[in-house]
């Protein structure tokens, strides 16, 4: 019978424990900062979707402005946010999540209180190719949705690439996925959520 050698096993266990320990420590030290960053990035996206300026604000001021502006509510079985600017209702922010070309895409749509035009669109996270589909997060693409008129839309054809909005050249797949996600969620909003809102 072959002799069982213990040394390599112990060596491997020891070195794994040491390295995992170091990583766990670093992770523990930075966890709070990482969470703050993620929260701040998400709050900036929310402020951006309703076109509020946050350029010169610190993370804390962003957080404060976010708390003042957005109130989470539930309507028609869906979670969404009410947007109040200086106490007046400006509109709603509706979250969207679905799979795009390379993975899950999370975003938010801002809808004006009259339901006649969009406030804007933001993407919170996605896995599209940098430089191609990833360009959906550039202002040039997103700004096309600002004040997009949706008052006389039939069915779910809110966004197409034949009129006011240009797709991203070289990223047809992502552009189409984004169009479908936005259209589906707006359709859902108008059919299941809108009636429940005051």
């Amino acid at each position: 019978m072959k002799k069982m050698r213990l040394k390599p096993i112990l060596f491997m266990i020891a070195i794994t424990v040491i390295f995992t320990g170091v990583l766990a420590t670093i992770n523990e030290i930075t966890a709070e900062q990482v969470e703050l960053n993620e929260q701040a990035a998400e709050q900036r996206s929310f402020l951006n979707v309703v076109d509020l300026d946050y350029e010169n604000l610190t993370a804390e001021e962003v957080n404060q402005l976010y708390e003042e502006t957005f109130t989470e509510i539930t309507a028609g079985g869906h979670d969404l946010f009410e947007v109040h600017i200086n106490g007046d209702l400006l509109g709603y922010v509706y979250p969207m999540v679905d799979s795009a070309v390379w993975g899950e895409l999370r975003g938010i749509i801002g809808i004006h209180r009259d339901f006649e035009y969009l406030l804007g669109v933001e993407f919170l996270s996605h896995n599209e190719t940098p430089g191609l589909g990833g360009r959906i997060e550039e202002d040039e693409f997103k700004d096309q949705f600002r004040e997009l008129d949706i008052s006389d839309v039939e069915g779910d054809n809110f966004v197409d690439y034949e009129g006011e909005i240009d797709a991203i050249s070289g990223a047809t797949g992502t552009s189409n996925a984004v169009r479908n996600i936005i259209n589906n969620h707006l359709y859902e909003f108008f059919n299941e959520v809108k009636e429940e809102l005051q």
């Binding site: 170091v22 930075t30 990482v34 993620e38």
Partner: peptide, 20 residues
């Protein structure tokens, strides 16, 4: 492999925390 992946994770964590 163990050593390399440990350092890569360190880079990833540091970027996430300080260069989001």
């Amino acid at each position: 492999t163990l050593i390399i992946s440990a350092y890569v994770i360190i880079v990833d964590i540091v970027l996430k925390a300080y260069f989001p």
